[in-house]
């Protein structure tokens, strides 16, 4: 994808600086998403679990794009809050193939959504690792979604319900299935971001 092409996508924004924050549990695939955004696909197979954070920046003609990827281990999640300030888009990455941690994922996301400093910030949920065999199937009807929601939530009703996104009224949000490993679905997520970031803060 490349940071420069990303930057071009966002250049229409009134702001001269854009800050994207990538959060999610450990092993969700945040750094792999960052690598795809930065056109570092060759390096995906060398990725090490993030101990602090990774940041990728690009400057061009007075416009600046910063993407922050913060480590997601339980012990270091309390530090996430230090990165909230000035965030334009929140990307929350979910390991769709780790069913046992959906509750933990949901809890972390709902806490984030109550953060004052992230109020109104558009939320892009990457339902990552769709390439894995045990990934939550996107097209399976929700076992526990209410019937009236199923109409609109054909894909990922489980995730939307679990994370209580359907009741969100204070921000734009989107769940995008993806496989960062294969570079699939990321582009669509970025397109959504480009369309939705401008109306949020300015």
């Amino acid at each position: 994808m490349g940071l420069l092409s990303l930057l071009r996508k966002f250049r229409k924004q009134p702001s001269r600086e854009l800050r994207i924050l990538i959060l999610g549990l450990d092993n969700a695939g945040k750094t792999t998403v960052l690598r795809v955004l930065a056109s570092e696909q060759d390096e995906i197979k060398n990725t090490t679990p993030t101990q602090g954070f990774n940041v990728k920046s690009v400057h061009s003609q007075g416009f600046k794009l910063n993407i922050w990827d913060i480590g997601g281990q339980r012990t270091i999640r309390p530090y996430w809050k230090h990165y909230f300030e000035g965030t334009d888009v929140l990307i929350f990455v979910v390991d769709s193939a780790d069913m046992m941690r959906m509750d933990e994922t949901g809890e972390e996301l709902s806490e984030l959504l109550q953060e004052h400093k992230l109020a109104g910030v558009p939320l892009l949920v990457f339902a990552n690792k769709q390439d894995l065999d045990l990934a939550m199937p996107p097209d399976e009807p929700a076992g526990y979604a209410s019937p009236d929601l199923q109409h609109n939530l054909l894909i990922f009703p489980q995730i939307a319900e679990k994370f209580q996104l359907t009741s969100l009224t204070d921000r734009r949000w989107q769940i995008q299935p993806c496989s960062a490993l294969r570079g699939e679905g990321i582009q669509e997520g970025m397109d959504w971001m480009a369309k939705n970031v401008s109306t949020s803060k300015w």
Partner: peptide
């Protein structure tokens, strides 16, 4: 079938997604 689950504001002006949506390997 819809493309993704999302917040509602945009839904009305959205194109029919079945045609525009990429088909993913999975």
């Amino acid at each position: 079938m819809g493309c993704c689950v999302s917040s509602g504001e945009e839904r009305t002006d959205r194109e029919p997604l079945a045609e525009t949506r990429p088909r993913y390997s999975w």
